[in-house]
Design a protein around this nucleic acid. Structure first.
Lengths: 324, 324
DNA sequence: CTGAAAGCGCTAACAA
DNA sequence: TTGTTAGCGCTTTCAG
């Protein structure tokens, strides 16, 4: 580059990297010239030598981006200023496609890979266990000896149910998704732990339609309907709230409802807006990003599952006031 | 690598790349050994020489991913088999952050950049016009001499309104977003072109709440309410449908409704599911991807705005049958 | 304090 | 048909 601008490439390199010893004057001059010329060191050449690409790959099967985008945002946020960029690869449960993507990333010498997904209890259709670079799992299942980040659904659920109780609700039921989901169990058990004996759990689908149906069952049945409902996700919650309104039951007047996910598009559009559990996916991404990077730099990281706390986002579907 | 496996590095290189002349036997043997060793050519070293990184950057300010994700999927789909990976950079209207990301990408020698966004009539907070690599714009505004891909909202809107008319609707109104959006005008004009004199356009927000409010105005007013409604987006449409149901007006019995965007989460959850306009963002991404790549390979591409056709997705909010 | 030279992993001339 | 050599743009000994 600006070796032409007075010094040898070696000096230039040292000046720009703040290494080596030299007159401040020389260093400054080089930087000056570099800036004027808009010089950018070629990361490939640099990487060839340093064995680091300052690049990581994010693999996901969450095509819709519901979970991956916040995670991605967190990763990116944590790593931009360290100069690392991230490859996003959406592999929709297609093993072949996944392999193609992983190979492409590996060829490009990514410093690490973060595997993510749409379901905590499912694996991506690729075996990353013998990848030549560090791998961390975020919001997807990983091998036993891996480092995995997930949200603490139990804690989140507990807070949700306790909030409902704190609003004075006496008969709190749980309307949730399919029993085949691990997160359904975790959330249900946390719910059960709080309400005890009188736990009532209704399993169904992750849809608004199921929310409607569940309300129909509860209110058309002989029993006294509940006054508090903890829903497995925001879509169900929205269905529940809509169904309630349609039968003249007021929320939060007669019944308090809490959702799960804090998916803006549904939580904020519900009337009234949903009080719901946020999984802090962005923070999760941040941790995951920092962790692969640490691993890439040779640090040792204890394998295991790390559960990051969820946070209750209070809106208006429960009455009650702002969070403590 | 497997130079140790019998031949010189040059021969190995030629064998693996199917270049040069040599015995099929040698070539096969090299490939064999390479496969056994799980050898992967170092893309950085290769790129250093070829001046190509097989990497492109996708820049977007659409944090929520509503528009960018499908675009991204299209780009990725078009480019994986050409071996190119894509860096996703979410810059939330923050010029500084944008610059950091762009610089990082440039350092990494991306072969090109695709700028995308959440609004067709706004620019990203970065000047890409003098980037040292080709840039194409997808679903965001670009400089005059750039190549830009957008969806053909006019055509999409026309089809939507014609569909409504085809369902026998006589008085079709248009409930849409803020006048400050260019797409609002494009869609409104297309609507006006079809219905002519009797066009009635209601500007508001992109929300369900506005859909409710608009219905209230139309039905509580003195005039005879419409029998067909073309909405500026799916959220408004959902608000409209919900409001209609609440006042006992049936959809599609009494009124037909069409949305815009085909945002699954809202379009499919509406009761009844929305007939709506899909912008084919994935196809748009595919074109954009192929185009940057062509540019990167030195092909000349005529600058200008390319409008890709939208497609009407028929569900149940209009009655009528499957599309022709 | 600074420059010359070697070398990262690969491909492309040029020889053999 | 195959091997040798040079060099991509940078960092890093090792001399000067």
């Amino acid at each position: 580059m600006a070796a032409a601008a007075g010094v040898s490439v070696a000096t230039a390199s040292r000046a720009l990297n703040d290494t080596g010893r030299m007159t401040d004057e020389t260093r400054e001059r080089v930087k000056q010239v570099a800036a004027e010329l808009g010089f950018r060191p070629n990361a490939m050449a640099r990487g060839l030598l340093s064995k680091r690409s300052f690049t990581i790959g994010l693999l996901t099967n969450d095509t819709y981006g519901r979970f991956t985008l916040p995670v991605m945002a967190g990763i990116s946020e944590a790593l931009v200023d360290r100069g690392v960029s991230v490859f996003l690869c959406a592999i929709e449960d297609d093993a072949t496609l996944a392999k193609v993507h992983v190979d492409a990333m590996l060829d490009k010498q990514v410093d690490g890979i973060i595997a993510s997904g749409k379901r905590v209890d499912r694996r991506l259709p690729v075996d990353l266990s013998k990848a030549p670079v560090p791998v961390v799992y975020a919001f997807t299942d990983g091998p036993d000896d891996s480092v995995t980040f997930v949200s603490d659904d139990a804690q989140g659920s507990r807070e949700a149910v306790e909030w409902l109780a704190g609003c004075g609700r006496k008969r709190i039921v749980h309307i949730t998704g399919p029993e085949s989901f691990a997160s359904v169990h975790v959330r249900a058990e946390a719910y059960r732990a709080v309400v005890g004996e009188q736990a009532e759990i209704y399993y169904g689908k992750w849809t608004e339609a199921w929310g409607h149906e569940a309300v129909a069952r509860l209110w058309d049945g002989a029993a006294i309907p509940p006054d508090g409902i903890f829903c497995g996700n925001d879509q169900i919650a929205r269905g529940v709230v809509d169904a309630l309104r349609e039968r003249g039951v007021t929320v939060p007047g007669d019944v308090s409802v809490v959702g799960f996910d804090n998916w803006e598009i549904v939580a904020a559009a519900t009337r009234p807006p949903l009080t719901t559990v946020d999984m802090n996916l962005r923070a999760l991404g941040r941790e995951a990003g920092l962790t692969v990077l640490a691993l890439a730099e040779g640090e040792r990281v204890e394998p295991g599952i790390r559960r990051l706390p969820c946070q209750l986002v209070v809106r208006q579907s429960c009455g009650g006031s702002a969070p403590t």
